[in-house]
Every structure is written in C-alpha cells, then in structure tokens.
C-alpha cells in the first residue's frame, strides 16, 4: 500500500464531512452507480483510500469525480450511511481550490431547477468550470 501524504487524506476527509470509518467495504456504492461503467476509479475506492490513509493521488488524478452525477445513489444505498458522493465533491473542490479562484458566477446561470440537491448544483458548477 502506498502511504502518502496523510495530511492531504485528512484534508479530503474533512472536506467530505462523511465518516469513512463506518465503511465495511461492501461495494454497493460502486454497484449502484449509474455511471460506474464510465469511471476509471470506482466510488468504493474513494472511501477505501481515505479510510486506510492510502493513495490520495489516485483520487486526485481520477477522472471519476468529473463523471459523477451527484445523484447520491451511492449514499442512498450505503448500508452504513457513508456518502462517496461527498468525497467526489471534496476532490472536485480540491481541484478548484488549487486553481486559485472560481471564475463561474452562479448569478449568470438562469435555468436551473430549485429542487435539485444543493450539492448537485454546486457539483455542476465545479464540472462546468473545469
């Protein structure tokens, strides 16, 4: 196992705000993900790497967070109440922060649905921005 950069793993964990230590690594998140077939790193891996302080780079370099629909299927079906979607979002946020500033102005957007989950809207901004 590659142990690198515990601080960054901790930062991602805090950004995600989901308790990864509850994970029993069953893989239901990856099984339920509707875009799993397009992902290079499956959702369960995002929890696993944070849980065991592992390879954060593989998460940061993955294309998966930009494929993630923020549909929350993973979080909804998780038997332990972990949210891999929140970690996907944390990875996106890390990239945005590394860029320096967010050039997208939410006020410029007109046609979005009020009923969308807040995180999905924000996630859409991240992806759009990239």
């Amino acid at each position: 196992m590659v142990i690198n950069n515990k601080e960054r793993a901790e930062m991602l964990r805090q950004l995600a705000g989901t308790n990864v230590s509850l994970c029993i690594q069953c893989g239901r998140c990856s099984a339920n993900c509707p875009v799993a077939w397009k992902m290079d790193v499956l959702p369960h891996r995002f929890v696993y790497e944070l849980l065991n302080g592992g390879n954060v780079d593989v998460l940061l370099e993955a294309k998966s967070p930009w494929k993630c629909l923020s549909c929350f299927s993973c979080a909804e079906r998780c038997p332990k109440g972990v949210s891999p979607a929140a970690i996907m979002e944390a990875v996106r946020l890390t990239h945005i922060r590394a860029q320096g500033n967010n050039k997208l102005n939410p006020a410029d957007l007109e046609n979005y649905d009020d009923k969308m989950p807040q995180q999905a809207i924000v996630a859409a901004f991240r992806k759009f921005n990239k």
Partner: peptide
C-alpha cells in the same frame, strides 16, 4: 455487492454489481 436488479418485459434480469478485487463494475 449487487446494486440494482432490473427486469424487462420478458422477465429477463440485469444485475449491476461491483467486483472490488479487480475494481470492475
């Protein structure tokens, strides 16, 4: 684990699952 099990009109099943050891969907 198995995520979703879908059934079409003919009753054919499609199972979506994850294989964690190989990292495959």
């Amino acid at each position: 684990q198995v995520g979703k099990i879908m059934s079409d009109k003919e009753g054919n099943l499609t199972v979506f699952a994850s294989d964690l050891n190989s990292g495959r969907h």
